[in-house]
Design a protein around this nucleic acid. Structure first.
Length: 285
DNA sequence: ATCGGTACCTGCACGC
DNA sequence: TGCGTGCAGGTACCGA
């Protein structure tokens, strides 16, 4: 990328709010890609305004340790964003439910961290405070213990992970140690596409059904990433935002509406304490 | 080891 | 109009 293009991209990003729907793998991937241009930037100063998202970290200590460091890399692991720093160490970011990373902009009521860079500023904003910002010397244990990426795991390993599991297939898909990055939206969407009831016992998803679920998981995540990637460029106004949120959910939050396949009203039940949306006719236990 | 349940937190939709 | 209530869910943690 040429110097001028780089500058234009940076100026564009400065006016872009990197926000998404509930941040699951595709949304976190979109955010991660959007902040990759920050690689090489130096952190001039850091300010932390909220202790909760620091998860026990000391704000002054973190600011001191971040001061002067360069952003060496940005990588996504499931729903985590790992920012590696020059000279070692990692800044771990989790968006929780409502977390956002803003390139530029003005700090607001829910801005919990401000990273001032040698060019631009990165804000962390999170109204519900389920997100996290942690500074680690070593590769974070909570990232190391995650399961494989759903877009990288081999079918055989995915199927092996289902064996012997007594929990519901929905709960297992949400379990980040099984595969990392799936949340409530994409669990429901993948199960619908595969024709599997969310309360089906995971160990009973075998053979052809396991294959269908694997294929559905890969397809829905891939399509969502493509949608996020394509919408980011017109994300500056309400229309662009609306287009992203209208990502074609087939069951999620469509309770009572007609199944697109058979017309049966979509139902909602609680599975693993989460609302789960499914077609009672198309999805079998 | 595995599993189910709960807490954390704020904004919003809803009914009266 | 305003107030109370339920709902939204990712992760850590608890007890069984």
């Amino acid at each position: 990328m040429g110097r001028r293009q780089e500058t234009e991209l940076f100026l564009f990003l400065c006016h872009t709010e990197v926000r998404t729907a509930l941040p699951e793998l595709p949304e976190v991937e979109t955010v991660t890609r959007s902040i990759k241009p920050l690689v090489g930037r130096r952190i001039v100063s850091a300010e932390f305004r909220n202790l909760r998202v620091l998860r026990g970290g000391d704000p002054d200590d973190m600011a001191a340790r971040l001061h002067g460091r360069k952003i060496a890399g940005v990588q996504r692991y499931g729903k985590f964003i790992l920012v590696s720093l020059s000279g070692g160490g990692y800044l771990l970011v989790h968006l929780g439910m409502t977390g956002r990373l803003l390139l530029g902009g003005v700090p607001g009521k829910h801005t919990h961290a401000i990273l001032t860079l040698d060019r631009g500023v990165l804000l962390f904003d999170d109204s519900r405070q389920f997100g996290a910002l942690e500074l680690h010397d070593d590769f974070p244990a909570r990232v190391a213990r995650l399961g494989p990426e759903p877009l990288e795991v081999k079918f055989e390993d995915f199927a092996a992970g289902l064996r012997g599991r007594k929990t519901s297939i929905k709960a297992l898909l949400l379990n980040q140690r099984f595969v990392r990055g799936i949340g409530n939206i994409y669990a429901d969407e993948a199960l619908f596409r595969a024709g599997i009831h969310p309360q089906a016992q995971a160990s009973r998803v075998r053979g052809e059904r396991a294959r269908r679920l694997y294929d559905a998981m890969v397809a829905v995540l891939s399509e969502a990433i493509a949608a996020g990637g394509s919408s980011i460029s017109d994300y500056v106004d309400a229309e662009g935002r609306k287009g992203f949120f209208q990502f074609s959910h087939r069951v999620y939050q469509r309770t009572g509406e007609s199944c697109i396949s058979c017309g049966t009203p979509i139902r909602r039940v609680l599975v693993a304490q989460r609302s789960s949306h499914f077609c009672p006719k198309c999805q079998r236990r």
